[in-house]
């Protein structure tokens, strides 16, 4: 049952062993095996410390070379144009440009947080197989409807900034839908095997990145388009 060897200075493997009770109806089938383990100290701790140190060195160098911004003293009577939120909220501020505050400022962030929280609790997110591999017809129909209505919605409200990543993801999904799992192309094989949760998250990541970059670098006075390299 156990191969424990008592002794204070033993270097022998002393990992606990698994015990399996096999009932009559099932046959024994080993799904996972013990794998090599190492001591947290020093193996993990030193690696972690190394990673952190490299990061800190980078941050220290950054701090030596670039000064944190400091503008004039706060003045409620002088509004800078544009007044921008911190960069990680600029995606939301970009949305605020298209939708009323109740939608862009309250509804979207709330939905986002809720969506993030429930991710591990939905079976669909757990399923690891490619979205168009099982029940292909139904999934294709759902995909067409969702992609078209989302695109139309964004197009209707002139949200081209958010429309572009949507169309991009939809395009890749189309490629995935019409590629064989054994396609000779590696990239296609990769796309085919992506589950639905992967596609949704990728769409979200793209939207977040594009909106944030646009809000940070491409928006000037009156939230109009500017080119960052031309100012």
């Amino acid at each position: 049952m156990s191969d424990y060897v008592a002794g204070m200075s033993s270097d022998a493997k002393n990992s606990p062993k698994r015990v399996v009770f096999v009932t009559r109806r099932t046959s024994a089938h080993v799904r996972s095996v013990d794998e090599e383990q190492v001591q947290t100290y020093p193996e993990a701790l030193f690696r972690a410390a190394l990673a952190v140190q490299v990061l800190v060195i980078a941050l220290v160098l950054l701090s030596l070379l670039f000064n944190a911004p400091l503008e004039g003293i706060a003045n409620p009577t002088v509004t800078p144009n544009p007044a921008k939120a911190p960069w990680y909220f600029l995606g939301l501020q970009e949305m605020l440009h298209y939708f009323p505050p109740i939608v862009a400022g309250v509804l979207i962030p709330t939905l986002l947080v809720v969506a993030l929280v429930v991710i591990p609790y939905f079976n669909i997110n757990i399923r690891p197989d490619g979205v168009f591999l099982k029940s292909r017809r139904r999934n294709l129909t759902v995909f067409y409807i969702v992609a078209a209505s989302l695109s139309l919605f964004l197009w209707f409200f002139d949200v081209y900034v958010a429309l572009a990543p949507t169309l991009m993801v939809a395009g890749f999904m189309l490629i995935a839908a019409f590629s064989a799992p054994q396609s000779p192309d590696r990239f296609r094989r990769y796309l085919v095997s992506r589950p639905v949760s992967w596609w949704i998250m990728t769409w979200f990541l793209l939207e977040l990145a594009v909106l944030t970059v646009v809000g940070t670098f491409f928006r000037g006075p009156g939230w109009s388009w500017v080119l960052p390299w031309r100012s």
Binding site: G72, I73, A74, A83, L92, P101
Partner: peptide
């Protein structure tokens, strides 16, 4: 820091 950057970023954010 209570500079213009700070004041207006928080104003914009809190107005939401």
């Amino acid at each position: 820091p209570w500079d213009q950057l700070a004041f207006w970023a928080i104003t914009v954010g809190s107005n939401i």
